[in-house]
Design a binder for these strands. Structure first.
Lengths: 148, 148
DNA sequence: GAGCGTGTAAGGGTGACGGTTACACGTCCC
DNA sequence: GGGACGTGTAACCGTCACCCTTACACGCTC
């Protein structure tokens, strides 16, 4: 089972902020770009700002901004901000303790699962939002900052 | 969002078969060990046998057996047999093509997502069911084959 | 041939997810 | 200072995957 779409949409929003520069973007603008609703975007921005990745300006002319340069935001931070980071679901109901296999399978399996998760997260850790933004600019043949 | 519990339960079943040796185990036995229902186990065994990891003996005294030595079954095979291997969900509805970010975000992000998935799968690839079974036997202080 | 065990289909309960509506609050602009 | 703007959050709903249960036809062993 895959993750939710929150991660990809959150990266989408951060990339949009990165290519736009210092101009605040409204949740409505981001929602249009990601083809979702402003409330969903605001929910994501709420998590991202709690994680220190974005900040918001209220009032007219307001919107969301990156709290840090895009070069200093990596995908692991985004992932942790918006997703449940447990990659594996254990048994819905725990195995019986009187079973030699059932009582030890989780302990025996945990190290391998942890290694897999760490390898996954390490890969996200060394990709930045700026790199994705650069790639998007290259594919879209535009230069930053992008005017909307 | 995590995977389903199918992966962990499938490994559980394979480990149970591994520690038991050549004796077939019924879906009911495996269900008891994993604290789930026989039908769920049979659904998993159906996928595992399709992937060439187990085989089933019908009739009285029948049950499931490993199709190969546990040393030759790695966790990646199990994972691929029972799970949806797409780790990331893209936008629920695709971004509009007239948006410079929306039309290129997927292409720009894909390489990073692929690297993360490959790192994850590579880790699963070099752990075998036999290793997990050994670890479970060590934790449970029993020797294989285990009598039930 | 009788019983055992598998394989699979159908139906239901549960929970996460994403969309929508609604509204209170803070902030900027005139 | 008043009004418009935009955020933040709660509540509700439809949808879907997941897992459980029941049910039953088929094949194999004894």
């Amino acid at each position: 089972m895959p993750t939710s779409s929150r991660f990809v949409v959150a990266v989408h929003a951060l990339v949009a902020l990165a290519v736009t520069g210092d101009k605040p973007l409204r949740s409505e603008d981001l929602a249009h770009s990601a083809n979702t609703s402003p409330v969903v975007i605001r929910g994501l921005l709420s998590r991202l700002s709690a994680a220190g990745l974005t900040r918001s300006q209220l009032g007219a002319g307001g919107g969301a901004l990156l709290a840090r340069p895009a070069e200093e935001i990596n995908l692991l931070e985004v992932y942790r901000a918006v997703e449940d980071t447990r990659l594996f679901t254990l048994h819905r109901t725990p195995p019986p303790p009187d079973c030699a296999v059932g009582s030890n399978i989780v302990g025996g399996l945990q190290p391998a699962l942890t290694r897999a998760r760490e390898a996954f997260e390490a890969e996200l850790d060394h990709t930045t939002v700026a790199e994705i933004a650069d790639e998007v600019a290259r594919l879209g043949k535009f230069t930053m900052p992008l005017e909307w």
